[in-house]
């Protein structure tokens, strides 16, 4: 499952961050590293981008970019922290 498929309000742990170049580096720099727990807070009114909660702050990214982030298959068990 990728971050783009995670339903609103649910949290999951990041397994891997794909993609390349500037985008991938940016995702990593903003704290989307493997092992981090992210929560999808909402989807923008026009259906894209999405708003995430991680490491105690809010981050927005586009669905097509969120597809690069794969999740550990066990949502619902864990709660977002911070």
């Amino acid at each position: 499952m990728t971050l783009a498929q995670l339903p609103v309000g649910e949290s999951a742990r990041i397994a891997a961050v794909g993609g390349e170049g500037a985008l991938r580096r940016r995702l990593l720099d903003m704290g989307l590293t493997p092992g981090t727990i992210v929560m999808v807070r909402k989807i923008a009114p026009m259906g894209d981008p999405i708003e995430l909660h991680l490491r105690g702050y809010e981050l927005t990214l586009r669905l097509e970019d969120a597809q690069n982030i794969t999740l550990v298959e066990m949502p619902k068990v864990e709660e977002a922290q911070g």
Binding site: L23, R26, P49, E51, Y57, E58, L59, T60, L61, D65
Partner: peptide, 11 residues
């Protein structure tokens, strides 16, 4: 060139 990725903080 590649646009700067839209990965933005919502403060």
């Amino acid at each position: 060139g590649n646009p700067v990725p839209f990965v933005m903080e919502l403060p």
